[in-house]
Structure formats: structure tokens, C-alpha cells
Nucleic acid binder design. Structure first.
Length: 276
DNA sequence: AGGGTGACCTGTCGGC
DNA sequence: TGCCGACAGGTCACCC
């Protein structure tokens, strides 16, 4: 579900409100992808200092009464959403984690349980390092340099779509926006990353930024169940050029959009607009 | 080291 | 109606 735009939209929807809030209670449901890494009760009495984002992770800086400064890493997995409630309704079957503060309850809803909430003592904590160290550059920050991007692609033999998804070159681009960015750049998803030309790489660099920025402006994509911290849907899916449009005419040239499977993920492209 | 594969988990949808 | 397989926005451990 959530790629960079959805995670960032979610962050913006609650970060300011919970920053400075004290943790009154924690409720855990069925286990998530990874263990929390601390006693839920040990967070109570702590204070949220702020919420940052790295790739598809939300990093909540906090202080804890017993463990000192710490970091709560939130990941939404495939089906997760985070919502901030003034007063939450009774927890449903898929409500996996509640962080109750005096400024509201932050609730992780995640049917498939691929998401996670993980406590680390800081970014140097081995738990945090395992999750964050291999991540590539942030696509919407100045460190995302076009020529450095091209050089990184030249070292990879895998198909360009899969290199985008891997997240070790650039983070935050998931299955929807990888297909969309490759369409915008006119590059066939199956092309080996090492064979992407300099001109193509520069177009792709711009396309990644443009697609993610546009998705942010549209509140993300709601395919099935994504909603932001206020429970509202995103609208980018309405203007997707290729994603989930197999068999439909290309919005540019009218050619039928094709579907293929790469690394067990669906890819969509236009054979005419993305010739090589 | 990079690349390919299976695994994790639950729900929904289409076909028979 | 029921069953079965395919598929869904992510990413990790494992093997070559």
C-alpha cells in the first residue's frame, strides 16, 4: 500500500499534533512483522518529540521514563494505515497498535500485519541500523543527484523497475510509482539498469520527483484501503497513466497498456511510449 | 555484492 | 452457495 507519498501524507497528518504529547497508554494487538522490542508499558510516561520520515519508515523521536531517549519506527507494510483519533472507537480486529496520548490516540490499522512498530534506543541502535542502514537516497531531497543516480544504475544488471523497487539506490518508490515514473520517462521496465542511457537516467530522475510530488499533492493513492491520519482517501490513482490499467488505452497514444510480472510484482507499461 | 526466490499474513475477487 | 487460485501498495532471509 503505502509508498513515500502515502507515508509522508500520513506523517503530515499527525506529526504536529502529537509532537510534545505525553504517552498515557499503549495497546498492542496481534504481533506485527517484528517485535516491538520493549515492554509496551515502558513507553508510558514518555514524551513524543517529533516525527520524521526515512523512506517508507516513520521515525518518532521520544523520551522514555526507563530507557531514556529513543526512537519508535513505524512501517505501514502493504496494508497499513495510521490514524489519529480524538477519542478512538473500540479497537477492531485489524487495529494492531494504539499509542494513547493526551493529544489523541495514534492507531495502526493493518489487516495483513506486514507493518511494524519497533522501539530502538536511537538511530545507532542495531535494530534501527538493520532497518535503515541499507536505504538509498531520499528522492525529494537535494542529495538525489541526477548524475550520481545514473552512475548507480550503471552498476546494476537487474531490470530498472526492480532496481527502483529495491530501495537501495533511491527510497520510497514502490510498485505504483515505479511503473508511473518509468512511463513518464519513456523507459521499458524490463531494461537492464546498466543499459539505461545517461539521457534516460536524467529523465527518470526528474520523473521520480515529478510523480512523487504530484502524488503528494493528490493525497497519495487509494487503491483499496489507504487513508491518511484523518481517515481520508488519496486521489492520485485517478490520474495514473499505467498502474492497474492493463488492457486500457494509453492516455497518450491509445495503445493498449500491457501487464507483466517482474520479481513477483505486477508491472504496467505502454509498449509505444516506453519503446526501450 | 548482486540477483533470484520464497516467506510472512489476511482479505477479496473471479471462475467453475 | 462454496471452494480454489490468483492477486494486493513491502521487504527480509536465504541461496547461488
Amino acid at each position: 500500500m503505502p509508498e513515500l507519498p502515502e507515508v509522508e501524507i500520513t506523517r503530515r497528518g499527525f506529526a504536529d499534533r502529537v509532537s510534545g504529547a505525553h504517552i498515557l497508554r499503549v495497546r498492542t494487538g496481534q504481533p506485527l512483522r517484528w517485535p516491538l522490542g520493549c515492554e509496551p508499558a515502558s513507553l508510558v510516561g514518555g514524551q513524543v518529540l517529533g516525527v520524521r520520515r526515512r523512506g517508507k519508515y516513520l521515525l518518532m523521536d521520544l523520551t522514555t521514563p526507563s530507557n531514556g531517549p529513543g526512537l519508535l519506527l513505524w512501517h505501514l507494510g502493504m496494508s497499513g494505515s495510521l490514524r489519529l483519533f480524538d477519542s478512538p472507537p473500540p479497537a477492531g480486529k485489524h487495529d494492531r497498535f494504539d499509542l494513547v496520548t493526551e493529544r489523541g490516540t495514534l492507531r495502526l490499522h493493518d489487516p495483513r500485519r506486514f507493518g511494524a512498530v519497533v522501539f530502538a534506543r536511537g538511530q545507532a541502535d542495531p535494530v534501527a541500523r538493520k532497518l535503515l542502514d541499507g536505504l538509498g537516497v531520499e528522492p525529494l531531497e537535494p542529495g538525489f543527484d541526477p548524475l550520481v543516480f545514473w552512475q548507480a544504475l550503471r552498476r546494476r544488471r537487474a531490470p530498472i523497475k526492480q532496481v527502483l523497487l529495491a530501495g537501495d539506490v533511491v527510497v520510497g518508490v514502490g510498485n505504483i510509482y515505479a511503473s508511473e515514473a518509468l512511463f513518464a520517462a519513456g523507459i521499458r521496465p524490463t531494461r537492464a539498469a546498466s543499459r539505461v542511457t545517461r539521457a534516460q537516467a536524467l529523465r527518470l530522475h526528474a520523473a521520480v520527483q515529478q510523480v512523487l510530488t504530484r502524488a503528494l499533492a493528490q493525497g497519495g493513492s487509494t487503491l483499496r484501503d489507504f487513508s491518511n491520519a484523518q481517515g481520508e482517501s488519496g486521489y492520485f490513482q485517478l490520474e495514473a497513466m499505467v498502474y492497474d490499467r492493463a488492457g486500457l488505452p494509453c492516455r497518450i497514444c491509445g495503445t493498449t497498456i500491457r501487464w507483466l510480472r517482474q520479481g513477483q510484482r505486477s508491472t504496467f507499461y505502454c509498449p509505444v511510449c516506453q519503446p526501450v
